[in-house]
Amino acid sequence: MSTTDLESDSPAPQTSSMRGSGRRVGDSVFSYLSVGSGLLIFLTLAAVAIFLTSESMPAVIASQEFSGTSEFSLIEVTLPLVYGTVLASAIALVIAIPISIGIALFISHFAPRRLASGLGYMIDLLAAVPSVVYGLWGGIWLVPKLEPVYVFLNTYFGWIPLFAGEPTAPMRNLASASVVLAVMVLPIITAVSREVFLQTPRLQEEAALALGATRWETIRTVVLPFGRGGVVAASMLGLGRALGETMAVLMILAPGATFSLHILEVGRHNSIAANIASKQAEASGVDMSLLIFTGLVLFVLTFIINALARWIVARSGPKS
């Protein structure tokens, strides 16, 4: 009975043709907006490259290397900054990587299952803190606390070039900046490593445990080899972040422009990003152009690091 109702009551659209405009207005608009947004991403990055390059040209043209006459050298200005940037990031990674692997293992394999997501959230909170607040905390709270550690290292391990030299308070040195950078990249490395560790084939782990391996032996023989590529990639991502970080370095480091290895000494190093941030307010003309040039160098540096990280991820990612 219901079916007859359906027929008699309904207007019969069936008799109309199925022909249509083919493209509806809404469909066209949506398609154009979507494709347009995709193209806009292309344009934006092209614009970044073009503006950074074109605005840095005046400095290149005015430099000794290009004109041969000017007294300022592009390389002499840029290289110490690149050195400082890379050194600070490298030390940050040396501190952060083992701790991150530890945390990632703790959350993925040691902590009770019920606690794991909450602990992961704590690490995410660490990532949510703005860098300027880290800078403030590092500059005011952490630097004085690190002083005895530096004195200790300098006194007893001064024969190692890194800890040599004459540290003077306040310890606004590269080591302090690196410690804060380490805190900032920790959540990134942890998050990626944790994901990789969790993807370890369950069967392999259970096989190891069934053979009588301890938890640590299982991790050493199964989890870590499986996750090696992921940890390397995570570290590269962390490196990319550390290279580009401005505030932690700007607010902590007393700048210098040398190739010194003495990370406990004050006023020896500076990073590209911090240098731009501290000089941009007074810079104009060729000076501004020079800052933009160093920014371009930083962009290229981080691009290479990130591309390398992605390449490693793609190569070592779990095959599915």
Binding site: A47, V48, L52, G244, A277, F299, T302
Partner: peptide, 13 residues
Amino acid sequence: VMTGIPSIVAGLF
């Protein structure tokens, strides 16, 4: 690539 742009470079842009 954009994800990896350092924030200072975004400012410069």
